[in-house]
Design a binder for these strands. Sequence first.
RNA 1: GGCGCCAUAGUCUAUCGGUUAGGACGCUGCCCUUUCAAGGCGGAGAGACGGGUUCAACUCCCGUUGGCGCUACCA
Length: 515
Amino acid sequence: MTALDNESRTDPAVPLLQTRPIRTRVAPSPTGDPHVGTAYVALVNYIFAKQNGGTFLLRIEDTDRARSTLESEAAILTALRWLGLTWDEGPDIGGAHGPYRQSDRTAIYARYADELLERGHAFRCFCSPERLAAMREAQRLAKQPPRYDGHCLKLDRVEIDALVAEGVPSVVRMKVPDFGVCVVDDLRRGPIEFEWHAVDMQVLVKSDGMPTYHLANVVDDHLMEITHVFRGEEWVSSAPKHLLLYSYFGWEAPKLMHLPLLRNPDKSKLSKRKNPTSILFYARMGYLPEALLNFLGLLLVSSSEGSEVMSLDELTKRFDIANISLGGPVFDVPKLDWLNGRYLRELAPDALFERVRDWGFDRARLVKILELAHARIERLSDLGELTAFFFAGRLPITKERLLDVKLPPADVRKALALAMWGLDAERVFDRSVVERVLKSIGETLSAKFRDVARLFYVAITGSPTSVPLFEAMELLGRDIVRERLRVALEQVGPPPSAAEQKSWRGAAAPEELAT
RNA sequence: GGCGCCAUAGUCUAUCGGUUAGGACGCUGCCCUUUCAAGGCGGAGAGACGGGUUCAACUCCCGUUGGCGCUACCA
């Protein structure tokens, strides 16, 4: 199967000749845990590149200076490598089209933004956030499509220079036609039409000088010679802007294909409030990378009959763009469980031993666990019960056990929520961070720490008495801890409402984003 | 509110105008078995609704409904 075949399938009248070597990419934003959605998107791009003898690369989209972290970037690399989705070019290994981290490419974007400015395809905008908010509100009330009203388009050269000299902050916006339609040709969906007058004049360069996703993405995909982009459905509505930028620059746009978004069991977009979404969680939980990959692959390649157990190679052989279904698939953990069981059972005892050791019984970890248990055992056989929670995923916790503490039930809920949010907000996850976060919860609730601690002992270790908590949490790791807190919270009541979130933490919960 | 995407069992899907609508997970019955799993063999369970087009519609078209996404100086 070649790219040519795939294209003729969606548009038989105009078979485009694929002249450039196939190059695909995954371009995650390092703003949180490596998301399974990122793995899903990476998988398609990887498979498509390999199937066509092409190149698959990894690019880090860290233009959001406030939210991007090096920790997150490292975790993404680790997670994708764990899955076996290796890239041919990337920030860690370099390549002929580097650098592969957008924050290292700011000079490049500035140059292209200037070019658009000079050629009249973009303009400087000095509007305040307040004015923009008021404008959008008015448009909503008037049932108009939300769109920049062109206020700063009327500024002349002299006025612009004066404002810049005054030091008034500004952004660069792209110009968008007022009439006509834009046709986005999706590899799988076919043509999608958008009225230009409903497409916003997107900001391309923020007031801090950093490009937005839209500019950086287009410039990089061009410079990195990307030929095919498989990305999440959330990008469909910004495709017209991207296509317009390609035409402003006079560049050939890559072929686009938008993938449906992974869903929670209730069909909402997969989110960590309702489900574990981190690849690292699935690793810590004891899923095998090949099982997770196979599971995600089943959403791209379907077998009409027979076994659904497929290796990456087999998925690659059978992949066909025309067969990707477009309904948003539920991330069905029970099916993943079954698949993982299949893989586990096929392992020879020795191989299984190695997997188990690598998963949670390596010497270094075991020694740390023994240190914690050491003073608390009288017989070696006490170890089993005392340390079992280190080798478990979710714990069979009951509401009664969780509420059996010297805290009012409402505070139990609040404490668990605060712990989840507080720990998520931390870049590093170690005993001292855990201690600081948990103790601050005690202060917030004006409760004795020992009473707060008891609750977390139950939620995390399954018992009000166990080995030292902070160290245990560090060894358990962020992902298992988050899941145990989430499950505990679920036990004691409904998820925190928007109002509760606001009053408890003073802001809305940031939701993680997939690529 | 605006724009867009999507729609076969609880879930993932096959079907690309004519099928008893096929498979997988889950559920369930039986077999195997010292228990439980695993495994084998069965079972229940689906085309959202309403209009067209057609000899014929799950399949094509339109509408409705529902789900989802975007609507940021986040990606």
